[in-house]
């Protein structure tokens, strides 16, 4: 071949770098987009507002304010929103508008596209993490007392949480028929899971039968893991069974990650195979119908 000058691995590495660059460019687009800016400010404003209001409520009988437990809960919830919901919606939208087909038409474009999705999801989620932590430093005493091991655990739960949620977001995004369905199928379950998983209020205040339901999903474990990382031992009294479940947290999130990384590539490959000009055309026609 006249094109044999390249080594395949070199081209793959090149595309991976392009994917990271693509994710960075997309992050800049988001940060300079007025609608996105408003969304970021309003959403995070609401959450920070909740923290302010909860400072005067008590976390059970632990002697801490409710806000102290809500901050890590928010950080955990944010991982699921960025990893699962964000990935699913982005994939559904970009299948519909032809971005994915464009990637498929480009050499190693699909690889770069997936790298970009991961990059953007991590950047977006990390932005939320920083916002909550900065708000916490101003609002909550005690955050500065968190030991290094606590911060390391936060980092570990954050990364494992991304691994546990992103593949499943990709599975949903690759399976839904339209961008609208992608939103509906993630947003509503997300609201329900947040409500039952003890993010804004200790799960011990929920009916007992709901506890095992919440414990099936990563939302609960991400909240619990972040509380485990940032809260002092005494705050564990508000947890189920009166203690933190560090091992179970890593076990459940690890299982979600392992299974997700096993399933998602298959689903993504099947989705990519089906992507073609006429597939995009027919989705476009359906979406247009929906508007008129």
């Amino acid at each position: 071949m006249s094109t044999s000058s390249l080594r395949p691995s070199g081209a793959v590495l090149h595309a991976t770098r392009l994917g990271v660059r693509r994710g960075g460019i997309e992050m800049m687009h988001s940060l300079t987009n007025r609608a996105d800016q408003i969304w970021i400010v309003v959403m995070n404003g609401i959450f920070v507002g909740v923290l302010v209001l909860q400072r005067s409520s008590d976390l059970g009988s632990t002697g801490y304010s409710l806000a102290v437990a809500t901050l890590p809960g928010l950080i955990g919830m944010n991982v699921v929103m960025g990893g699962w919901m964000g990935t699913a919606q982005m994939l559904a939208v970009e299948r519909e508008d032809g971005t994915l087909l464009r990637a498929k038409s480009t050499p190693h474009g699909m690889l770069a596209y997936l790298v970009a999705r991961v990059t953007l999801a991590v950047l977006n989620t990390a932005l939320g993490l920083v916002i909550f932590l900065v708000a916490g430093l101003f609002l909550l005493p005690g955050l500065t007392d968190v030991p290094l091991t606590g911060w390391l655990m936060l980092l570990a739960v954050f990364l494992l949480g991304m691994l546990a949620t992103m593949p499943w977001g990709a599975v949903v995004g690759a399976s839904v028929k339209s961008a609208g369905a992608g939103f509906g199928l993630t947003f509503l379950p997300m609201i329900v899971l947040i409500a039952i998983s003890g993010i804004f209020y200790p799960i011990t205040g929920m009916p007992d039968w709901l506890h095992p339901v919440a414990q099936v999903f990563p939302v609960y474990w991400l909240g619990a893991g972040m509380r485990d990382a940032l809260l002092p031992e005494a705050a564990a009294a508000a947890e189920l069974g009166g203690q933190f479940h560090t091992l179970t947290t890593f076990g459940v999130l690890g299982a979600y990650a392992a299974l997700g990384l096993l399933v998602a590539p298959r689903v993504l490959r099947a989705m990519a195979r089906k992507e073609s000009g006429s597939a995009v055309e027919s989705r476009k026609a359906k979406a247009m119908q929906g508007w008129s």
Partner: peptide, 11 residues
Amino acid sequence: VQQSWRDHGRW
């Protein structure tokens, strides 16, 4: 060159 719609609108 495919029949495009609106991909990469922010680029």
